[in-house]
Design a protein around this nucleic acid. Structure first.
Lengths: 344, 344
DNA sequence: CTGAAAGCGCTTACAG
DNA sequence: CTGAAAGCGCTTACAG
């Protein structure tokens, strides 16, 4: 207590000396290994506490221990979905006393460099890949990582993963609209970023098409707009679809953020939501409740936690099962039956 | 090329053997230290490349090198502002080949544990603190970190920091409103989180009050609402202020996210923005453009980059100057002159 | 310009 | 239950 711990670090040898034992015994005691007398162990723990001893991770690692670090590879930390994921993963892993390293790989060249250099090698025990669309060459590089891999928000090869059923999510949304009586339903897709295709986008489009078919509605390619994954993108998409000669009466948006832009664009055209046009999103973004947006909710934080849990299991080399998280329709005020034909 | 690099790592000794030199020479060559013949250096670099050699950070660190890791301590990675900051910091630091460790400390107990245990000790070379309101006991613990400290989005003690002028930002916003002729101007504050006071909130309130005084307008405490830092909070705040007997004609919101909620609440009351009520935010969140929100823009990513830059300098033990980043009024369609008195 | 050797702070057989 | 010693893969004086 009287002693200030600063740059001159306290080492295991200091603890050992103070306790009158060898460093080997301190090492065992601190890690809860068998082969240390109860009294000895307690004394050692007390002294370590008192000296505010922190183990040198480098030395520990170098002599065979794990790094106790997890790498999270994510397209961009500044987008809502990834931020949620990342935050949840960090919280869970921190609780298990692991450190979290973050690697953003949004830009194609940064991502390619990542997979060429594999900078997580020798630095982490597990890598969590978040919703990363990967060309085969890059996916195959993962074997060279030399660490466990877990995937969240999608799937990559046969690595353990947690995801939602994007096809079913889109079907749920479209079924809600057809249930209200809509027959002209448009979809605003979010274009893949960079050079690679994005699974959720592809699967949600499939779900949209499947559900239209299930409701005996025609597939109208002009009802599908592809836009950048931003609110402005959503506005563009809505403008494009609503200026069609025979515009849709309802819009499924790839995400709530896209939907926010669509809502605004529709209002700017002098149309009312939901009287003239219904809008449904996907995610249940915090703003969705405020803006009254009907959406299909997925629990992003829960996916992150689950991914962290899987990482923890893989650390112990235990088998883990893939997980598909549930989703749920949240009806608010942006969806209603279509206007009577010709009224618009 | 023919050799697969996997779990059996390639060490410096392997490179040395292949190159027919000692590990000492390889170590020097790889780090660009003087005292290695040009031809030797080139051969070593080639072989290292060919073998896809990655240095063991643990061994390097243990024998005196830096960790080449930076810890970022942030309230929550899943909030817009922090996500922007974090993303920008990571990008800059990654470009300098440093790894970024993230520590979330939103909850009081987690934060207290952080400052009790200081888990970044022995793990990073620099810690970047993002917009962290800290009680004095915790701020003083930073001396025990044993690493450099840099602060972003605020200031803590006399550590080098980058911030915006929150007082001036609020004054700019209020001046815009008074310039339009508003005399009844409300403010929606974001309450501090947890047990500590939040500088930007306090300073923006001060700026609001100063600018009212400068315009010879009365301070009306009932015109200031304190709400949680969420869109719903913004809606609550707007409801509270607009249901006053003599409601404001303009609202300054702590942030754009608060303003989004306020906009919606105002609309729900059957009032129009900006005809009946003007709303101004702070930040220039991506949705602000879409929703036509007038705001005072601050470049959060630039602040993050600057903080990363400072961290890089501190790594080299160079002196750094504190930085105050600029801000800028962005006029959109949510602000206009007040309605003629009595019209509302 | 280059190498042999000590040392960084731990963990892990191996003995006792 | 406990300790002495080797070893992890580097860096850094110290020699040459």
């Amino acid at each position: 207590m009287s002693r200030v711990v600063s740059r001159n670090e306290i080492n295991m040898a200091d603890v050992a000396q103070r306790a009158g034992v060898s460093v080997a015994t301190v090492s065992r005691a601190l890690r809860g290994l068998p082969g240390v007398g109860e009294a000895t162990r307690e004394r050692i723990l007390e002294i370590a506490e008192e000296l505010a001893y922190v183990i040198s991770p480098e030395a520990s690692r170098l002599s065979g221990g794990p790094t106790r670090r997890v790498g999270v590879v994510v397209p961009a930390a500044d987008m809502w979905f990834y931020g949620q994921m990342l935050a949840a993963i960090e919280r869970r892993l921190r609780a298990a006393d692991l450190d979290v390293l973050i690697y953003q790989v949004k830009d194609v060249d940064v991502r390619q460099r990542f997979f060429r250099q594999l900078p997580t090698r020798r630095k982490v025990d597990v890598v969590i890949l978040i919703a990363l669309p990967l060309p085969p060459e890059e996916a195959s590089r993962l074997d060279h990582l030399g660490v466990e891999v877990v995937v969240a928000g999608g799937s990559v090869r046969d690595f353990p993963h947690v995801e939602v059923d994007d096809r079913a999510i889109a079907r749920t949304a479209v079924a809600h609209l057809t249930g209200l009586g809509h027959e002209r339903i448009g979809m605003i897709r979010a274009t893949s970023y960079g050079d690679v295709h994005w699974d959720p986008d592809r699967l949600r489009l499939e779900g949209y098409q499947l559900e239209l078919a299930a409701a005996d509605l025609p597939q109208r390619p002009e009802y599908v707009a592809s836009v950048p994954f931003t609110p402005e993108g959503g506005a563009e998409g809505a403008d494009q679809l609503m200026s069609l000669p025979d515009p849709p009466t309802a819009l499924l948006c790839f995400s709530d953020e896209i939907a926010f832009g669509a809502l605004e664009a529709i209002r700017r055209r002098g149309l009312r939501v939901p009287e003239d046009v219904s809008v449904i999103g996907i995610d249940d973004h915090p703003l969705a409740a405020t803006l009254g947006l009907t959406t299909v909710r997925q629990d992003v934080a829960a996916q992150g936690e689950m991914a962290a849990e899987m990482a923890l299991l893989r650390l112990d080399h235990r088998r883990v099962e893939d997980v598909v998280m549930s989703h749920e329709l949240v009806v608010r005020t942006s969806t209603a039956p279509p206007p009577a034909r010709g009224t618009t």
